[in-house]
Nucleic acid binder design. Structure first.
Length: 519
RNA sequence: GCGCCUGUAGCUCAGCGGAUAGAGCGUCGGCCUCCGGAGCCGAAGGUCGCAGGUUCGAAUCCUGUCGGGCGCGCCA
């Protein structure tokens, strides 16, 4: 059975289908059951919470909340604005969320942007639900890709063409120019390939650029984990031993395999190749043991859909190593097709054809970009028309919401000038229709947050906050707040406006979006 | 071929078992002597890809089918 908010307010504030669900087991008509339930509520100890309890065909039980109950909620908001919207912790777990994790071989692209926003949004929502969250970035600064980057930078420095398998973006030229002479001299002097030393310098440099871009988004990672450390600190070999102890590895053709098929995978997976070198998967399983050793109850990975084929082997390995596979969770983010001039823009760092995350922020702004990704389901693919986004950024719904917030701030200023202070209680105010409509929406925030936490999605928050802004604008139109002739009513309306402002601010904060006092 | 995701208004997307299917943008028409017009009011626009099924009730669940995307390496 469910309690829900009916699409049509005429049916009430809440509705339940309980009677219809009970009809079959009780072998009674839904209407009959609903009447019984309605009677119990009308005479129950909480009866003063309801203004009306009605029964509707084919068996809905509709509840209308008493104005005094809404007024009490508004008073609660004003009494503790900072915590309004936080919900009781249902699942007090310690969660590790790994996202972005782009290797430091070039600046973050708009392709990485969605992962950055979605990951941060998820963390914020989990935190609102009382969970302890660690934001983690996994990178490899010692592999073949970094070697290619070093070779590319070294080639440019030497005035030679970039190698076939190198990186061709303009940033490579910047790196070659910025490469310090002493680093370059030391790299060239050795017997070996200068690419490695140059690559180490370059990837460190690139990582700094990445951190700066992420900071600009308001995304700050708690832990930066290098793939090399998983090997050097023995996590990979320990993981392999756990699998070996469980009897789930074997050697074949000179390689070491994980028996993933024993857990339903299509095929077994190689951990160590026949040349003795580890696969990417080897590092993955080492990382799982490393993460759980830090005391996390739950691991979340945010990956692009193109990695979905690797979920099974990792989950299976976690299970084989003795962890609960339910605590190894992958959230897939849908493909983003970036369109410019009607054509898809390729996002190749190698070819140097990509749009950077910084370009995106320059074009549309952080708040608009956050809103854009927050308002879409994470797993669906989306088309992002860059030209359209630029054109529409000025009309982005986020500004509509921020405008409502700024407008309230302006009213608050006006009220202060007129010597009106907000009332602690708004008793009686909701007899007015515009006031009641606003209060009803304000009171909804905790439910919206709870839904977001449960769904691990944020679209509900963006649509709620849009609705709240609309309700405020209607209130603004119909109920003049600052009125020297009606000081008592003014201070109550001001209190309600403040509650709406707090609600807007807290909801926007949940999305990492600013709530300006003027625009 | 197999697996996963997806198809809702002109465009971009919400809704994912309930009572007349929503928003933004776009289009058309109104509203500034009055707390910020980045606003408000109204109109046009949809057989929710298609066909079956389950249910008191389906855009929502199941099956099939058509279209789109992604993945099926001892790559990362």
């Amino acid at each position: 059975m469910e309690v829900e908010r009916p699409a049509n307010l005429a049916f009430g504030d809440f509705a339940t289908n309980l009677a219809m669900k009970l009809a079959r087991p009780l072998r009674k008509s839904p209407l009959e059951i609903a009447e019984t339930l309605a009677g119990a509520l009308r005479d129950g100890e909480d009866r003063e919470l309801f203004a009306a309890v009605d029964v509707a065909r084919p068996g809905f039980l509709n509840l209308r909340v008493a104005n005094s109950a809404w007024e009490a909620v508004v008073a609660d908001v004003l009494a503790a604005p900072a915590t309004w919207g936080r919900i009781p912790t249902v699942n007090p777990r310690k969660v590790n969320v790994e996202f972005v994790s782009a290797n430091p071989t070039g600046p973050l692209t708009v392709g990485n942007a969605r992962g950055a926003f979605v990951g941060d949004l998820l963390c914020r929502v989990l935190e609102a639900g009382g969970q302890t969250v660690t934001r983690e970035y996994y990178f490899n600064d010692s592999g073949a890709q970094v070697g290619h980057l070093g070779a590319s930078v070294a080639a440019v420095r030497d005035g030679l063409p970039v190698p076939e398998d190198g990186y061709k973006g303009a940033y490579v030229e910047d790196l070659a120019r910025e490469l310090p002479d002493d680093v370059w001299a030391a790299a060239s002097a050795g017997d070996g390939d200068p690419a490695e030393a140059v690559g180490a310098w370059a990837s460190h440099r690139v990582r700094g650029m990445i951190e700066a871009s992420l900071a600009r988004l308001g995304v700050n990672f708690d832990v930066w984990k290098s793939e090399a450390s998983l090997h050097s600190e023995g996590w990979v070999s320990r993981a392999v031993e756990r699998l070996r102890d469980a009897g789930q590895v074997y050697e074949q053709d000179g390689a070491l395999w994980f028996r993933s098929t024993a857990f339903g995978d299509d095929k077994d997976r190689v951990i160590y190749k026949s040349d003795g070198r580890p696969t990417y998967f080897a590092a993955d399983i080492g990382y799982v043991t490393e993460k759980f050793s830090r005391g996390f109850d739950h691991l979340i990975y945010i990956w692009g859909v193109d990695h979905h084929g690797t979920i099974a082997r990792n989950k299976n390995a976690a299970q084989a190593m003795g962890y609960d596979p339910e605590h190894y969770q992958v959230l897939l983010i849908g493909w983003v097709r970036f369109i410019a001039d009607g054509l898809e823009v390729s996002m190749s760092k190698r070819a140097g054809t990509f749009v950077t995350l910084d370009d995106l922020l320059d074009a549309v702004g952080t708040d608009a970009a956050r809103w854009y990704f927050a308002s879409r389901a994470t797993h669906v693919e989306i088309d992002f028309d860059i030209e359209l986004a630029k054109k529409q950024s000025a009309e982005n719904p986020v500004y509509y919401v921020q405008y409502a917030h700024a407008r309230i701030a302006s009213i608050v200023r006006k009220a202060a000038e007129a010597g009106i202070a907000p009332a602690a209680s708004i008793a009686g105010l909701l007899a007015g229709e515009p006031e009641l409509a606003l209060a009803r929406v304000v009171a909804q925030l905790p439910e919206v947050v709870e839904d977001a936490v449960r769904a691990e999605e944020t679209q509900g928050i963006t649509s709620y906050v849009t609705d709240l802004a609309t309700q405020f604008h209607a209130f603004y139109r119909d109920a003049h707040v600052v009125d020297a002739a009606e000081p008592e009513r003014s201070s109550k309306r001001l209190a309600l406006a403040l509650a709406a402002q707090t609600t807007l601010r807290n909801a926007l904060d949940l999305l990492g979006i600013s709530a300006p006092d003027s625009m």
